[in-house]
């Protein structure tokens, strides 16, 4: 009997790594306008590029991170038209005309917003790699649930992995903000 491994071998004979890109599609350059954190950006992009790629590589807004590039880990989470999305599996051309919010838009200049301050105060971060995504997920949650329960917060951030295990402090930070308990 053929094993799953043999099937895989047949399907991915060369590199055994995910070729997540869209190589069968020809490269096609398009000019698009993206609205990010209230600013308009008119840019030329490869039509195959994801929103995360365009943010990171074309616009050099590297606060949005990538961890898997296929909607597994949530590290690339940002807000589009009020909802959290995985920016690694949305094409940049699809995001045209949408209202995009990223980590870079949370602070006003050097003034951190209450959620950011609460993350620092509660030590809701370790290596920090998932934190932009966590902050965006929490931001979106607090807009629809002003007074979330602990369970709401856990559900609200469940799409983002934190391998360092900062979850208890992240939940605490979000609850602190919802209760107006940030004084830093």
């Amino acid at each position: 009997m053929t094993s799953i491994g043999e099937l895989r071998l047949h399907m991915e004979p060369k590199t055994l790594v995910d070729e997540n890109r869209h190589q069968n599609q020809p490269r096609r350059v398009r000019r698009i306008v993206l609205s990010i954190n209230g600013d308009s950006h008119s840019i030329e992009v490869d039509a195959r590029s994801t929103l995360a790629e365009v943010l990171r590589e074309n616009l050099r807004m590297t606060g949005t991170k990538l961890g898997c590039n296929r909607s597994e880990c949530g590290t690339c989470t940002l807000i589009m038209d009020g909802r959290t999305v995985f920016s690694c599996t949305i094409l940049a051309v699809e995001a045209e005309g949408k209202c995009i919010e990223t980590i870079e838009g949370l602070a006003s200049g050097s003034d951190l917003n209450p959620l950011q301050k609460a993350f620092i105060k509660n030590d809701a971060l370790q290596c920090g790699y998932c934190i932009p995504a966590m902050l965006m997920a929490a931001t979106a949650l607090l807009r629809v649930k002003m007074e979330p329960t602990e369970d709401d917060v856990r559900q609200g951030i469940a799409g983002v992995y934190c391998r360092c295990g900062a979850y208890p402090n992240i939940v605490r930070a979000v609850l602190d903000v919802s209760r107006g308990q940030v004084d830093c």
Partner: peptide
């Protein structure tokens, strides 16, 4: 999980190799 015939890892991804989320804490 590794295929016992080929040694190929069958779940090299974060959907099937599950690490804890906020819900398991």
């Amino acid at each position: 999980e590794f295929d016992s015939k080929t040694g190929i890892m069958l779940n090299p991804d974060l959907h099937q190799y599950r690490i804890p989320t906020s819900l398991e804490v």
